[in-house]
Structure formats: C-alpha cells, structure tokens
Design a protein around this nucleic acid. Structure first.
Lengths: 332, 332
DNA sequence: CTGAAAGCGCTAACAT
DNA sequence: ATGTTAGCGCTTTCAG
C-alpha cells in the first residue's frame, strides 16, 4: 500500500533517497538509511511488483501450458520445471489448455502481453496458426514435443523419442524369440498415435516380421478402450504371444480383461505399457519410462538460458526413453 | 513491443484516442478507429500487462501454495482451483513450499508485492509468525486446513474433517460387529497425524472399545513405513481383525506385507486406507475420499468472491469425507 | 469527437 | 550525499 513517496514524505527526504536506501545501491548517509528503513518497516512497505516489471520488463514468471490438467503425466513434468525455476526465483504460471487451440492461442497472447518472461509449451496442435503465434509472441518458448521444424521458427524444443520407445518394447519381445506381437495404439489421428504405431511397424520390419492386421488395434488411451481392444484380441482364433500397448491406462484395461478371461500374464500373454505410471509400478506392469521430469527440467533450463542469457542459435534436444521391466513382460 | 504511443504517432492522433479506439470505451470516429485498429494489427501491438496492472491493481493471477509438489493429492486440489479461476480469466501461480516456513513466508511476501491478487494457501505450519504474515499480506488468503482461529484473522478457510474421516472407517468396521481394530497413523508430531489418531480413539470410545496399545502404530505416510508397521502387527500373538490406515500409501505397504505373509485380505484382515488415490481404486483398497477437488473449487470460489466482491465477514467451510468401499474392507 | 495531462510506483541518469 | 527529472505503458479525467 505504502509507496516510496509516502516514506519519503514522512522521512523528509526525496523519493530517490528512499529508493537508494531500500535497494542498497547508490549513496545514502547512515543516519537517513536507518530512519528510512525503520519507517518502511513501520509502514509495512513492500515494493510493487507491477511497477518493477513495468520498468524492468522482468516478470519472474514463466507460463507453463499443458493440455490436460487431469493427467499425472504432465504434473510429473512440472516437477522438473519448477525445480529449475526455483533456482532462479521464478514461478510457473499454470496454463491449462485442454488441448484446445483457442485456449493455446489465448495463452500465447498472454505471453505477448507480458504475463511471463517465457513459456514451456506442451501442445499437440502444431498447425501453422499455432506456430505462427509462438513466433509472434516475441518471447522465448520451449516446446516439449517433436514437431515439423520450419526455417523461421525461433524456439527450442526438448522431447522424447516415442517412436523409439515403442520400438524398444517390441525389440524386447523379439529378443526373447517372440515373433507374434500385437499392438494396441492410440488414435492414429493424433501425432502421438502415429508416432507410436511407427515405432511398432519399424521394429517389426527390422526383424522381418510381417504385420498381422488383426493384431493391430486402435484405442483412445483410456482404460475402457484397452479393455475393448483386449476383448477383440482374445476372440481371435490365433492370439499373439506378446502385446505392446501405447500407454499404461490401456494396458491396465487389457490386464483386467486377461484376468477375467483367465489369460495368464506373462505365461499366455506378455504385456508392456507406456508412461511408467505409479499404477504400472504397483501392479508389476512393464512399461516405458518417458522421463517427464527430465523433459521438464531441460525445457526449463533451455528457457531460463534464453531469458537470462542473450540470443543464441535454436536448440533441439531428443531424449531416449527407457524400459522399466517388471513381471508382465518376462520370460518364465 | 509497440506501445499506443507508437501507434498514435503513426496514425497522427493522440495516444488517448488510440486507447479509446482499442478499448472500445469512449468516443472515436469510425474512420480513425479503423485506421488505428489496422495499424495496431500491422505493428503487432499487444497491451502491456504490467502497465495495466500498475494502473488497475489487478493481476488476474492467484498464488497457489502447496507443500509438496510430488504428491498427487495436491494436484487433484489444483484441478478444482484452476477450474474456478478459468471462469474468471485468472491463472494460478504455482508456489511450491516444500512445507518450509521460509518459503511460505517468501510466497506471502510475493503476495504482498502484488504477484497475485490473492492466495490459496495449503500449509501445516500454522505458527503465529505464519498467521501474522498472512494477515499482513493485505490481500485475501484462503486456507485449506483446519487451524486454531484467532480473533484478528482476516482469512477464509475450507477444510476436510479428517477426524471424522478416520472415525468413519472405524465405525464401518464396528457396524460389521468387529471390535478388534488396529491403526497405523502418520507421525503424531504433525497436526494431520494427531487429528487422524483422534478420529480413531473417538470412534472406539463411542463404541466403548478399549484401545489396545500394541495395535496402534506410527508411520510416516510412506509405503515403506506401512510395511514396517504391518510386519510388527503380524508378529503379535493376537492380531486385530481390521485395520484403519491414515493414508493409502501406508495401506498399500501393509497390503504388500499381507500378501507376502499369506494374510488374506479381507478374510483374515480388513483394511481401509485414506486419500482414495488412483492406486486404491486400481487394487480394490477401500479408502476415504478427501474431496480435494471440491476443496480446491470452494477455496477458489471463496477467494474470487473476496477479490471481486467487496469485503465481507470471514467464512469457514468444513467438508465431510466419504467412504469409498471396495473389496479390502468387506464382509465375506 | 479529440487531445493534453496527471498518475499508477519504481528506477536511473543527471544535476546539484 | 541528495534531489530533480524523465520514462516504463496504460487509463482516465478534464478541457477544448
């Protein structure tokens, strides 16, 4: 409430003397400094963040855009982000976008208006509109997905190689001598869905295993869709020996159906999921660790580097996923 | 980058005309409005959030202080918060405090400096220092815990009745005719630990069941501590028939040990946890739903009410928890 | 309908 | 060592 002007008036000095006394920069006699500090204390003075920002163009905030606030996956990412930010006395401003482009554009607009000094942007809508808005924001943005890079793009990216993640799962089975491998994917409309399927077909091609159409099923990343897919698989005359699933929720759905139908895991069917969620760990489901925390940390580091440091060439980091092997995928 | 001054110069009008044209408030000829709007578009104008805030004292942000960024419990709470904020075009600024008072005070200082218009404050350190800082912040704060209310406190609170939560679990067993009920609690040093234990002893007292010291164990809310406690219980000459556990993680630890020692759940031992986590649901562990999302929502509503509305009397809301009954606690 | 001017609160260059 | 002044960018009141 109280400003340096109030203090100045009461102390009988000029506002700039107060500013110097409080900031510690510039000259100020010991006597006045004491008086001023005491007065500031008494009047409950606190500097105005808004005024400072207006002057300095530093907000000490970073926008963190996520598509789905209900997904623990992203929250694990924000751990990494806020860890790094904390070291710089920055705070993350949480921007839930529901994956809706309109909201994403709104948040990018907020960035332009200076709600924060930069943005960590998790999105799946990499349309030209969106990319243009990112570039137009005039402030550093770090993407956390693989995306088709344009020549004029001015932002960094750090992402995990999902193609490789699914391929690793397949290869794990292939190394066990298994050739009959099924796949439950996400919607192939989305980029993530396509990438994961690509990992599957790539790994099979490497091993010269032909793809079996009946064994390739589409889900929507929900547990329910995993159940549906598994039921369809179970009904086939010949079932695969192993199953690669594009996320843990669907894998859990599949496991549920297996238990129901007395399909033993891993004896009759081996399964690997993806995300390495708490649930996977709890029930012994093998999975692919997507290193969300590291993605968050690296994204925040790239971002802070741009915010604090000068301009530098664009940088893109790709992380490799890791298998978390548990009972559900192992040889007996 | 471009300010209304730039636009004014290029349009050959005064800054205030530009301001009127852009805001839509006040008079402006159609001709000039068009010219200005077009210019603004072309120059990539965006209003400065900092300048607006300095002038209006509205930041459109709310600080959300949480002790533990690694705990899904709090993330479920933020869902509710951000849902409500979204309706007012406010964004939550995430303030991780690690439960450290120093960081909490720092965030309260940020609040005073106007980093946000108010705060949802999850804390366990309700010392006089802390409370004083909340009152000194001069901006609305909503607490999400029960706390010893002082006469000068000017903040709202919304919290869940944990005492009742644990008591409900106990009564559920008592209603089944069970009298031998054990308890694994959190550290009784913390407020939460004490409250939960109070719920246990209260329920037993109501039913005139004497407390058995051997059956009352202390953990630290971690899975490992749940295992340790369960091992100790298992080693007793006489074990309880049912077990009330102060959170799901410890209950999961206990379940693990039960499986290991071939103690059948619920036949030999019935268990109810607390938090109603995803894991509890997954493995059929009965639990107490703490309604985090509603707490978040209500807290945000109280806060926005104070931010947008005028002053009003202090308000405190207490929510009742709910039992989520699953296989682990049921009669066979 | 339009422009000048003051003010939000702090900072920093400059003058005294 | 201290004070004056201008400026950050927008809003709003008051003249014209």
């Amino acid at each position: 409430m109280a400003s340096i002007y109030e203090i100045a008036r009461q102390a009988g000095v000029s506002p700039s003397t107060v500013a110097r006394a409080l900031s510690g920069r510039g000259y100020c006699s010991e006597e006045k400094r004491k008086k001023i500090l005491h007065l500031a204390q008494k009047m409950g003075y606190s500097p105005s963040h808004a005024a400072r920002t207006l002057k300095s163009h530093i907000t000490s905030k970073v926008l963190f855009c996520i598509p789905d606030i209900y997904n623990p996956f992203y929250f694990r990412m924000i751990r990494g982000v806020s860890e790094v930010l904390e070291g710089h006395d920055y705070l993350p401003l949480l921007c839930p976008t529901k994956g809706e482009m309109a909201l994403e554009l709104r948040m990018l607009q907020n960035l332009r208006e200076g709600w924060g000094d930069g943005m960590v942007f998790v999105s799946f809508n990499f349309t030209p509109d969106n990319i243009a808005a990112v570039n137009a924001a005039q402030r550093p943005v770090v993407l956390t997905n693989n995306y088709p890079e344009g020549p004029d793009d001015r932002f960094d990216a750090v992402y995990i190689d999902t193609v490789e993640g699914i391929a690793m799962s397949c290869r794990h089975f292939i190394a066990q001598g298994i050739r009959d491998i099924g796949y439950i994917g996400g919607s192939s409309a989305a980029q993530t869905g396509q990438e994961r399927l690509a990992g599957y077909s790539q790994a099979l091609r490497e091993a010269s295993i032909p793809m079996t159409a009946d064994w390739i099923l589409d889900g929507d990343f929900s547990t329910a869709s995993g159940e549906t897919a598994m039921r369809r698989l179970a009904a086939l005359p010949k079932r695969p020996e192993a199953l690669v699933v594009a996320n843990d929720l669907m894998a859990i759905g599949a496991l549920k159906v297996c238990r129901e139908l007395h399909i033993r895991v891993p004896e009759d069917l081996k399964i690997i999921g993806m995300d390495d969620s708490d649930s996977a760990q709890l029930i012994g489901l093998s999975s692919v660790r997507m290193r969300e925390d590291e993605i968050g940390r690296l994204a925040a580091e790239l971002l802070m580097d741009r915010i604090l440091g000068g301009p530098r060439p664009r940088r893109t980091l790709r992380l490799q996923p890791e298998l978390s092997l548990r009972a559900s995928s192992e040889k007996i």
